[in-house]
């Protein structure tokens, strides 16, 4: 069999949030950022953002194309491998990829829809705003934005393990931050792997993109349940289910 059917275009939070017209020419995909500079992916060339020559930090995030994701969870393992390295014979090595340590987490639904959830780098960061720890001299709370990558980070020496950040993310955004089962300190904030996200690099299906830009100053956060409901309606029609005799 060799007929080639047209493959559907990308379907991402940018479409589902309604903030941007569903015209996929509207943003840039940076699958190889950090290596050869800005790589334009299958989304086309127009950009939503303008990165000046100023070396100012730029908001960046992992964007999921739900039309490509198959729910294989390779991203989870890749994330855990990079962000939880181990020392073997005095040498730091990638870990074995325990997915329960991953910052990106795939939620599976029935009818079939898989929704990877990862920090979407909200510009207005309600998680940071919810941190009750007094800002230090540099204006940092225990939870703060990394000055270079703008990722959300936690300072465990100042964190009081109140869980307010995780609650803010859960209540208002995607629920990416999860408190540690024992310490209650926030975990699962995306690190962007220092600028070369491994989930993007290793996704066998090209479902993850590394994009950066202003994104109109909006955030593109929806809880996985709402994304799943939207995907299921799109893929399987308004009324789905089994059958009666």
């Amino acid at each position: 069999m060799s007929a080639s059917e047209p493959s559907p275009g990308p379907l991402t939070a940018l479409d589902l949030c309604g903030g941007v017209r569903a015209d996929r020419r509207d943003f840039i995909r940076l699958a190889a950022w950090g290596g050869a500079g800005l790589a334009v992916g299958h989304f086309g060339a127009r950009t939503l953002w303008a990165q000046g020559p100023s070396r100012q930090p730029v908001y960046a995030m992992i964007l999921v194309d739900y039309n490509r994701c198959t729910g294989c969870r390779t991203c989870e393992a890749a994330c855990a491998q990079f962000n939880h390295p181990v020392t073997v014979d005095g040498e730091e090595q990638r870990g074995l990829g325990n997915p329960s340590l991953s910052n990106i987490r795939v939620h599976a639904f029935n009818p079939d829809a898989d929704v990877p959830v990862v920090c979407v780098m909200c510009r207005d960061n309600p998680c940071v705003a919810a941190c009750p720890v007094e800002p230090d001299a540099e204006g940092r709370r225990a939870l703060y934005r990394d000055p270079v990558l703008l990722t959300v980070r936690n300072d465990p020496s100042r964190c009081i393990a109140c869980g307010a950040c995780a609650e803010a993310c859960r209540a208002h955004r995607v629920g990416a931050i999860i408190p540690n089962r024992e310490t209650n300190r926030p975990e699962r904030m995306c690190t962007l792997c220092g600028g070369d996200p491994q989930c993007v690099a290793l996704c066998p299906y090209g479902a993850l993109s590394y994009i950066k830009g202003g994104l109109d100053g909006r955030h593109y956060a929806l809880p996985p349940e709402r994304i799943a409901a939207e995907l299921i309606a799109r893929w399987y029609g308004p009324a789905q289910g089994g059958d009666v005799r």
Binding site: D112, Y205, Y236, G241
Partner: peptide
């Protein structure tokens, strides 16, 4: 197309019957 854990093959096909005598079946 859906895949099992860490599988690059995605041989599992989920679909819907759009028309005919049994529409809406997923």
């Amino acid at each position: 197309d859906f895949a099992c854990y860490a599988c690059p093959l995605a041989c599992k096909k989920a679909g819907r019957v759009a028309d005919g005598p049994y529409p809406g079946l997923v």
